[in-house]
Amino acid sequence: MARYGVAVAFGAPSGADGQPSLAGTGEQAAVSLAPVPASDDLALHLDGSRPSPAAVVTKGLTLGFGKRTVLEDVDVSIPRGRITALIGPTGSGKSTFLRTLNRMNDRVAGFTRRGDVELDGESIFGSHVDLVTLRRRTGMLFQRPNPFPMSIADNVLAGVRAHRIAKKAAWPAIVEARLREVRLWDAVSERLGDSPFRLSGGQQQLLCLARALAVGPDVLLLDEPTSALDPLSVEAIEALLRELVPALTLIVVTHNLAQARRISDQTMFFFEGRLVEFAPTDRLFEEPAQPETARYVTGRIG
């Protein structure tokens, strides 16, 4: 059962970039999806006898907007201290899934949810749950870098100040430590008071990462964090993400299959509102258990 977090050791960025061509083949409509039971690997539930290897557990999670169901009945355990990639075509529900994990969808009009999400064994939808605490524990990085309209240093400190994490005297040290952590210090140390919008897109995304790390999250949700960036920045960010595990649990939505292979330990494949397969990344790409997965990772649907 609980194979992750224990036995599975992948991870060396293999540099595999057998990214299949994603040219539309028009085959998508022809794919019939019989309700496939999730593979054994998905049935990871909390095992009382030993410490849970799962950081995030979903139970019968069904999400929708208005009357439309976007994602149906997802039961997964996302292991701690690993990078989990979420792949699937546009509209498959993976972003909605990600944004449910820190309740970013709460604000969206018409959002509906059944089922539950547990973070470290505790429901995030419980009545006693404080959104502020939840979001301190689950940081998020968006598709487009979104620094705030304040100085670079103030951006790093935005969360620190909002949560009164540190005294003012400690702020400069925090700024430096976090910017060093994301390898941005050397580029910006001379202009901490400048606008972040003069940085390159990749640097802005690193700044947002520093900002997210500064509040000390356990889980980091990343919604296509590199899709708007140039190849060199992508490389820098991917390398950084590899360094953040196992201290943090990373959940990454990506459209880039090669990226999923390079950085993730296991991969969830979403298709047409269902979680089709959840397996160690190598296995999901090399020997997919489900026919849709095989077609997607070889570029025949998508």
């Binding site: 820190n102 968006f142 620094p147 900002r211 509040v215």
Partner: peptide, 20 residues
């Protein structure tokens, strides 16, 4: 995106309104 960024950092509504 500013608002989302503030939400994701766990800023309270009033705080992000005032500061962002």
């Amino acid at each position: 995106s500013f608002r989302e960024g503030a939400d994701a950092l766990g800023m309270r509504e009033g705080y992000s309104l005032l500061r962002i």
